[in-house]
Design a binder for these strands. Structure first.
Length: 927
RNA sequence: GGGCUGGUAGAUCAGCGGAAGAUCGCUACCUUGGCAUGGUAGAGGCCUCGGGUUCAAUUCCCGAUCAGUCCA
């Protein structure tokens, strides 16, 4: 256990604390109050600060943030700028969920030095885990700022550790005017993300204001420290990871009934005005409701309707109010609080460049956005989201960057609102149709149907219920609807793919890192090397000029020559810094051995094509940003010999005009023949200098980054490049494609590949116009004319066939054999298709006494039977006739009693078919 | 990255193996002093594309593509 990690904390002993065990939950805590028995956390203690602020001076967000950062600056910490809320430097999380996330994984692992040490920061974070609770509890937020001071200690240098951290916390709280005897520190061992350590929660007045984590353990199979079933060992580096909740500090300083009233009072005010609700916090009776609600909600789980109902009941009891009356007051206010919170969340998300989408972080943005729209609709408030977001931006002048991006934000919000409106409209129709269908069967809309509609069409059950009600169908759904949907998904998919590592991984680990020279001498293609090892058709060399696949760029090909033996290199990969060359072995076995001297030859043409496409990708990215806006972000890229493609985040389709513009700008950059710059920089330094735009192409591992500058595009990139843009040659954008909502793919070719692509397209034009014997320039109008004419002819053809059928029918009816009052038409032709037979049959059917058997020998045999209304009443069925005939020609058929068609491949049976049908007809009709 | 749903007339959709439909919109005419409206007639479909199964595919199967949606 982690208990021993607390033993070296001397601060409590030296400062008159008492170590106690909470009489309610049993947790260990420290306090200066000898008489205290409970730990201070929910549910053991309830809020005492509402109406009675913890701190001496009420502060807003900006004031509190500044106070905190200044406090730690004065105590030797360096203030650093916030990181984006979208964690672009991480590939394991989408959103920044804590201040320490800024420094994971490379700073915390000790690989890369921190931007400053010790440092202080106020990091905006987004957590969507408790979405349901936001607005209800009075304290939950999706977006909050984690104020923090961090220390990165190493075994060589310790700045400070546990005692000083707790002392600073005590000092901060005291300086803000908190009653220090009310503060409790709860022992709360922490583990997460492969690390663990001692941690204390800082509680005042029933509110958790901060958590102080002392991260000094890492997960390890051979570790000896057991934390929650996993084994850990000590790290060389040990880190102070604190988290002070800015919003909670503000709340504690004001003692308002809810955190929302403290954090964004103007937004809440504005929303209540729009909704026509009075939110009169000056009225003590009214304020008491929310205070009581916050207290009860502080000690229970409020997700789900059942829990909410229980909360309402408790609150109503405590203040002596009717539950319905309470609900009437609380429900709209909870929505307003949630809207205020969600729109702030969107302000950060969109302001930091998230594009709403149906995948990844974009989906999270859309989720929040749609929840907000729904709640606004519930309140009957009809204002664009962008107006509320604009209020937040005005309210947070500390974030001027959001004003710069507001135009894009506004457009995105408008598009998303329209999109959701359409989705709901579409969904409502589907619901109503289904509801009516089930109602006709005397059933109610089943749950499965409701779930499917949510899953496939995004219509939440609340909306379904509402829509069904409009057509007079009542729909019920259980409280745990969303978890049922989640269960359905977990049943569906559970296949985890096996990780395909390299087969000889263990052998590679013993080899030295391959010296790679393709950066130092990018133009050299021939080299000598010593073979370090071989496995099957894989060869490892001491050095190489071959580029291994990576960064979306395919591997180099070429040859390895050892004496008189020559092998083609068909693939090159790198594992943990060791480059593996895969050879194409035509003989039985590889005739290269360990220790051999070989000559390597890189396929220059292929390498050049890759380099052109890689540099072109940076150029196109830059051009796209110039044309489409600064929000565009690379979501993936691939470079091959003939093509390259770049996926960029963008909230609407790229138009042809925009493509043309991007293409033009890209080619101008080529023509300017700018030098491509390379720079090797320390990771943190690079991030500080160039921002996270560096990680367009993903997050390369390691301490130092290779920075590639092409024009105004600056990226961390490990690929091979042209040394100047002119070498790239022409860039031709070939097509765009939407691979996901919010992600557009550009496909293009550069250099020789571009010429080839253009020539190929030209060929298509030439070939097409040659077929029509026209000039390519008039291809579009000509094709249009041809298509129109073709449609006309098609129609005319049909009309003529009908007329012909009519004419033939008259003749056939004249020649018909009489069986009583019935006339029997039998006709065998060649070359008539099933359609013309059927048309003739339809004509014949106008005579209610007619019976027809029409056969045609074409592509086998086609047969149609028509039985007039009066003959049908005699029990003659066209379907039966066709079945008989079709069997005779080895096929099948069917249809309705009056008209049926069929056929078969065997033409020799045609006479037999006819005879059988005629016999059957005569038999039936004459009886 | 995975799952689900859908592409049929200008729009919204029905049909789901054997004659391509409805409603709105459009055009013309009739009704009216004019308009709202009502009536009559008509135009408008490579049933998304490419394979397969079948005597026969808008319909079933596979693939592509476009769109929607849920989840990691």
């Amino acid at each position: 256990m982690l208990d021993e990690e607390y033993e070296d904390i001397t601060y409590f002993k030296e400062n008159g604390f008492f170590e106690k065990e909470c009489t309610k939950c049993g947790n260990i805590f420290w306090t200066r109050d000898e008489k205290r028995e409970t730990c201070g956390d929910a549910p053991c203690d309830i809020y005492t600060f509402i109406g009675k602020p913890i701190f001496s001076k009420p502060m807003n967000l900006a004031e509190m943030r500044e106070y905190f950062l200044n406090f730690f600056e004065e105590r030797g910490h360096t203030r650093i700028d916030r990181y984006p809320v979208v964690a672009r430097w991480r590939d394991d999380i989408y959103l920044t969920i804590a201040s320490i996330a800024d420094f994971q994984p490379f700073v915390t692992s000790g690989l890369v030095p921190p931007p400053a040490n010790p440092l202080t920061i106020s990091q905006p974070c987004i957590r969507l885990n408790d979405l349901d609770s936001v607005g209800r509890t009075g304290r939950h937020l999706t977006t909050f700022e984690m104020m923090a001071h961090h220390v990165f200690n190493s075994k060589d240098k310790e700045i400070y550790w546990k005692d000083k951290t707790i002392a600073l916390c005590d000092e901060l709280l005291t300086s803000l005017g908190a009653d220090i005897t009310e503060v409790t520190y709860i022992k709360s061992p922490w583990a997460g993300g492969g690390n663990a350590g001692a941690s204390v929660e800082v509680m005042v007045g029933g509110l958790e204001l901060a958590t102080l984590v002392f991260m000094n353990l890492k997960e390890s199979k051979t570790g000896t420290i057991d934390v929650k079933g996993k084994m850990y060992e000590r790290m060389d580096s040990y880190i102070v990871d604190t988290g002070y909740g800015l919003e909670r500090f503000v709340w504690a300083s004001q003692g308002t009934p809810t955190i929302y009233d403290a954090v964004f009072p103007t937004i809440v005010q504005e929303l209540t005005n729009l909704a026509g609700i009075d939110h009169e916090l000056n009225n003590p009776e009214y304020a008491k409701i929310f205070a009581s609600n916050a207290q009860f909600a502080g000690v229970m789980d409020v997700s789900g309707n059942a829990n909410l109902l229980e909360l309402r009941r408790q609150v109503a009891d405590s203040i002596g109010m009717d539950v319905d009356e309470l609900n009437r007051i609380m429900d709209p206010m909870e929505k307003i609080f949630a809207i205020a919170d969600h729109t702030r969340c969107l302000t950060f998300m969109l302001g930091d460049g998230i594009i709403p989408s149906n995948v990844k972080s974009g989906y999270l943005a859309r989720l929040v956005l749609r929840r907000t729209i729904r709640m606004l609709a519930d309140l009957g408030v009809n204002v664009p989201l962008s107006e509320i977001v604009a209020l937040h931006i005005d309210n947070m002048p500390e974030y001027p960057e959001f004003e710069d991006t507001f135009k894009v934000t506004e457009e995105i919000l408008a598009l998303e609102e329209e999109k959701y409106r359409q989705t709901i409209e579409r969904g409502r129709k589907i619901i109503q149709k289904a509801a009516v269908r089930y109602q006709e069967k005397g059933e109610s809309l089943p749950l499965e149907e409701l779930m499917e509609i949510y899953d496939s069409h995004g219509i939440p059950p609340e909306v379904s219920k509402e829509a069904a009600k409009e057509v007079g169908v009542t729909v019920e759904f259980p409280d745990n609807f969303y978890s049922l949907v989640a269960d359905m998904h977990s049943e569906a998919g559970d296949k985890d793919e096996s990780i395909t590592g390299f087969k000889y991984m263990d052998k590679i680990e013993r080899l030295p890192l391959t010296k790679r020279f393709y950066y130092d001498e990018p133009e050299r293609m021939e080299f000598e090397a010593v073979v370090l090892d071989t496995f099957e058709d894989f060869v490892v060399l001491d050095n190489t000029y071959f580029y291994p696949e990576g960064g979306g760029q395919e591997a180099d090909n070429g040859m390895l020559m050892a004496g008189t033996f020559v092998y083609d290199v068909i693939d090159v990969q790198m594992y943990n810094g060791v480059v593996i060359h895969k050879l194409n072995i035509t003989d039985k076995e590889l005739l290269i051995n360990r220790g051999d001297m070989i000559i390597g030859q890189v396929d220059k043409k292929r390498r050049m094509a890759h380099s052109r496409h890689h540099t072109a990708t940076h150029i196109v990215n830059d051009a796209a940003r110039k044309v489409l806006g600064n929000h565009i972000w690379q979501a993936g890229a691939q470079k091959t010999e003939n093509r390259a493609r770049l996926d960029i985040s963008h909230y609407k389709h790229i138009t042809q005009d925009e493509i043309n513009e991007i293409e033009m700008i890209a080619n101008k950059m080529v023509m300017e023949n700018k030098k491509v710059h390379f720079e090797s920089l320390d990771r943190t330094e690079a991030e500080q200098k160039y921002g996270f735009g560096l990680y367009q192409g993903g997050i390369p591992p390691g301490k130092t980054l290779r920075i590639v500058k092409v024009g105004s595009d600056i990226e961390a990139c490990g690929g091979t490049h042209c040394l100047s843009t002119g070498v790239v040659g022409p860039i031709k954008i070939l097509k765009t494609e939407r691979i996901q909502d919010g992600v557009e793919r550009l496909e293009y070719a550069a250099g020789e590949a571009a010429i080839a692509a253009v020539q190929e397209m030209e060929g298509l034009l030439r070939d097409s116009s040659e077929i029509l014997s026209i000039q390519p320039e008039i291809l579009p109008p000509t094709v249009e004319r041809f298509f129109d004419e073709w449609k006309e002819l098609q129609k005319e053809n049909e009309k003529l066939k009908e007329e012909l059928a009519g004419a033939r029918t008259i003749k056939m009816l004249q020649n018909a054999e009489k069986i009583g009052e019935f006339s029997l038409v039998v006709n065998v032709t060649k070359g008539d298709g099933i359609d013309s037979l059927r048309m003739a049959a339809i004509e014949i059917l106008k005579d209610e006494n007619a019976v027809a058997v029409l056969l045609s020998e074409t592509d086998g045999v086609k047969a149609v039977a028509a039985v007039g209304k009066n003959a049908v009443t005699k029990g003659l069925k066209a379907g039966d006739l066709v079945k008989m005939m079709s069997q005779a020609v080895g096929g099948g058929g069917g249809g309705k009693p009056d008209l049926a068609m069929g056929g078969g491949p065997d033409a020799s049976g045609i006479e037999k078919a006819k005879a059988e049908a005629v016999a059957k007809i005569k038999e039936t009709l004459s009886s």
